[in-house]
Simulated assay, not measured.
Amino acid sequence: MSSALTGLFRHPIVQAPMAGGVSVPRLAAAVSEAGGLGFLAAGYKTADGLYQEIKQLRGLTGLPFGVNLFMPQPEYPGASTGSTGAAVAAPPSAAAVEVYAHQLAGEATWYETELGDPDSGRDDGYDAKLAVLLDNPVPAASFHFGIPSSETLESLRRAGTFTLVTATTPEEALAVQYAGADAVIAQGVEAGGHQGTHRDLPEQDGSGLGLLSLVAQIRETVTIPIVAAGGIMRGSQIAAVLAAGASAAQLGTAFLATHESGAHDVHKQALTNPLYVRTELTRAFSGRPARGLVNRFLREHGPYAPAAYPEVHHLTAPLRKAAAKAKDPQGMALWAGQGHRMARELPAGQLVEILAAELDAAMTALSGTGDPR
């Protein structure tokens, strides 16, 4: 296990960065203060908004924390390079987005709002946010939807920042190591929210690997530390991924229901509401595969949503905001991992302590030094 990684926490528990207002400074601070590694989510924020959250978090804790950035998206989904070296792009998504907008017209009428502008930007202010992290170095930075350049990773390393990049396959993990990242986040298909695939290929929808299999395969592929993510809700599951070769576990849905989480109360309540019996990967809300609780919006629009991120995200943003304002869970993006029914409504610090105790008990049982019951 990397000493640089273990120096960031007392317990191998990482709070996943959940964009959209969930991973607020008070949540990250509570996790870090309890011995885990708290994270801020820069996604969908302005660079100044990120700077202010970092400043606020530093006022709450002097312990290590991390910041997550979304990588800029290629012009077309699935863009790649052909055998001749020439760029080969998927068909433009503008027409498909326009068709989807017509389908959502009824939703806009129902929620008395306008659809968003799908052409509101593709890079999420990446360069400006990266500049914030280089000018005001943070202990850890992670990246989703792709890999930063080797130069960027080296610049962050020189600034004293530990870098992590999400991967959903062994091949992506190898590319992460080759680029020079300090660690890889192995995201299993069980994970809630957006899958961090490096290329959005519709033909691969739903084909992701389960977490334990993914961690084991990545462990045989790379030498850098692995942080396992996907459906983890209990300390015994953390012990399982550690046994499979991970150095730490990243939990998102488990912290979604905590007191400090910035998630809407309706979202928190839905996690354990028997009305929502399962989750599903969908493009309905953002145009990229993301796992959420199956509600009316997902059922009605998921089958028709195009592979167009972030265009669909921008398009549906006012709908999701209006649904949340109306406290209507049937129109909200209720991101959740497969273990959502195991969510516990606790203070985040207390959850870290309970997870750590469960982990210790499971590790003792695995070692054969205690009662396995």
Rank of each mutant, 00 (worst) to 15 (best):
L8C: 02
P17V: 00
M18L: 14
G20T: 00
G20Q: 01
G21V: 05
S23Y: 01
V24S: 05
R26Q: 14
L27D: 08
A30V: 12
S32A: 13
E33H: 08
E33P: 02
G35A: 12
G38W: 03
F39W: 13
A47E: 00
D48W: 08
L50P: 06
Y51Q: 10
Q56L: 14
G59V: 03
T61A: 10
P64R: 00
N68S: 04
M71I: 05
Y76I: 06
P77L: 05
S83G: 07
S83T: 13
A87P: 04
A89E: 14
A89L: 14
A96V: 06
V99C: 10
A101P: 11
A101S: 15
H102L: 10
G106P: 09
E114S: 13
L115S: 08
G116H: 03
D119L: 11
G121E: 01
Y126F: 14
D127Q: 09
A128Q: 00
A131C: 07
A131D: 12
L133R: 00
L134S: 02
N136M: 01
P137G: 09
P137I: 04
P139V: 09
G146S: 03
P148Q: 10
E154I: 05
S155Q: 15
A159E: 07
T166G: 01
P170T: 13
E171P: 04
E172M: 05
L174A: 15
L174H: 11
V176W: 10
V184F: 06
V184R: 07
I185M: 07
Q187Y: 02
V189K: 04
Q204M: 13
S207C: 09
L209R: 11
G210L: 12
L212E: 11
E220Q: 15
G230P: 11
G235V: 04
Q237I: 09
G245K: 09
S247P: 05
A249E: 11
A254Y: 12
F255K: 00
A257E: 04
T258P: 07
H259Y: 11
E260C: 10
E260N: 12
D265K: 11
Q269W: 06
P274E: 01
G287M: 04
G287S: 07
P289V: 02
A290G: 14
R291L: 03
R291E: 02
L293N: 07
N295Y: 10
R296C: 08
L298E: 14
H301C: 06
P306R: 06
P306M: 06
A307Y: 12
E311I: 05
V312T: 06
V312C: 06
H313P: 02
L315F: 03
A317G: 04
A323C: 07
A324I: 08
Q330R: 04
G331Y: 07
M332K: 10
W335H: 11
A336S: 12
G339Y: 01
P347E: 12
G349V: 06
G349N: 06
V352E: 08
E353W: 04
E353L: 14
A362M: 02
A365K: 14
